[in-house]
């Protein structure tokens, strides 16, 4: 079992003819992802890595009966690409693109209230169900099949933690990167709920970072609704207020909200052990299992 994606998920790649789109389409196919179509306006009729290209997402979804899309479109056009995907009946849209203007995402966010389609990201590494399917840019070789779910705001931090788990022989059901932007589709709570409902997931790792209040809200959710144990990590303990630490969403505001301390306290209060180092997170997962 897994959450959101499995070997049957039929995937459209938006922006398949661009450098990133092309490279990662090949990587996804190599991993076993069922990539059924790509889109690129004006390039309909071409093929990339044996995958048919369509001008619009609607055409691609209708012709190839797709369930999910993954967006590699550059930031200036990515908001539009997400709107296009949300106008079809896809179940899941995974936006990899980093650097989409926040006001574009506010408009997308409004649209999400009117559709059943789930958005993951943007500015995320994607989602992977080891051994079955990956949508995005995660390096497949570090993941292994198992019983731990992982949800994270950061890509490379996810790799770091997964690597520690895999090296100890602890595999994963699904790993999901929710993205480092201030406005994102799928939240920690959405992912935690899905893991809680997945019988194969015996423990969950949640990697948060400074900025916003999503981790605090997730802690409240864990305390109230989860039986599956959770191990936590929070990046940005040393970040000074008012400075954006790379991710647009990773900023401690002047009034002191969004600090690592407040997030760690909230998680501890919810019974979630928070590791000081990535290795300690792996130790905690071993204990929980």
């Amino acid at each position: 079992m897994s959450i959101l994606v499995d070997e049957d998920t039929r995937v459209v790649v938006q922006g398949i003819t661009g450098g990133e789109g092309k490279f990662h389409t090949k990587q996804m196919i190599e991993y076993g992802t069922n990539v059924v179509a790509g889109t690129s306006p004006g390039k309909g009729g071409q093929e990339v890595a044996g995958v048919p290209v369509y001008d619009t997402v609607e055409e691609a979804v209708e012709a190839e009966d797709a369930d999910a899309s993954v967006v590699f479109v550059p930031p200036a056009f990515a908001g539009d690409a997400i709107f296009e995907a949300l106008d079809t009946d896809l179940d899941l849209v995974v936006a990899i693109t980093e650097g989409i203007p926040t006001q574009d995402m506010a408009k997308v966010n409004k649209r999400l209230t009117e559709t059943d389609t789930r958005l993951q990201g943007p500015n995320c590494p994607g989602i992977i169900t080891p051994g079955e399917s990956k949508l995005g840019i995660l390096p497949g070789n570090i993941f292994s099949e198992g019983n731990v779910g992982l949800v994270s705001r950061s890509g490379t931090l996810t790799y770091q933690v997964v690597d520690s788990l895999t090296q100890r022989g602890i595999g994963q059901t699904t790993a999901i990167g929710i993205g480092g932007d201030p406005i994102i589709g799928t939240s920690f709570i959405d992912a935690l709920e899905a893991f809680e409902n997945d019988p194969e997931t015996d423990a969950v790792v949640m990697c948060g970072e400074i900025g916003g209040e999503d981790e605090e809200e997730a802690a409240a959710y864990i305390a109230e609704h989860m039986d599956t144990p959770v191990a936590g990590f929070i990046a940005g303990r040393t970040a000074p207020p008012g400075k954006r630490m790379g991710h647009a969403g990773a900023i401690v505001s002047g009034s002191g909200t969004g600090t690592a301390e407040s997030k760690i306290d909230a998680l501890n209060d919810a019974g979630v052990p928070v590791g000081d180092t990535p290795e300690e997170v792996a130790d905690n997962v071993e204990d929980l299992l």
Binding site: S152, R153, S154, G155, T156, L157, T158, Y159, Q160, G180, C207, E209, I210, F233, A235, G236, R237, T238, A239, M245, G246, H247, A250, A260, P278
Partner: peptide, 11 residues
């Protein structure tokens, strides 16, 4: 490379 991992390195 990557905001979360660099923040973690700082920490």
């Amino acid at each position: 490379n990557g905001a979360g991992l660099v923040m973690t390195t700082l920490d």
